[in-house]
Amino acid sequence: MISIIIIVFGIIMIIAAFLAIHLKNLLSAIISAGVISLLASVIYLLLAAPDVAMTEAAIGSGLTTIIFIFTLKKIKKGDLDD
């Protein structure tokens, strides 16, 4: 049962990674990169590694996504000024 869930999540992660590269809208690309980390943290939890799962959920899908969004906002503001 667990292996089926892991395989499904792995396939979704590969799709999200593909989308993160190929989406034209940068905000959607950042969100789909965050989805990869979120699913990875669920997989770590299923594989009985709660410490790594907490780190991945907090840093990978939370903080990194937010910092990317802030950076995107800064870049767009710079475009408008020029």
């Binding site: 709660p50 410490d51 799962a53 907490m54 780190t55 907090a58 840093i59 939370g62 903080l63």
Partner: peptide, 13 residues
């Protein structure tokens, strides 16, 4: 489970 790094990131959020 968890510790300094995870707790610190949670405080940041």
């Amino acid at each position: 489970p968890g510790g300094g790094f995870q707790g610190g990131v949670l405080i940041t959020t």
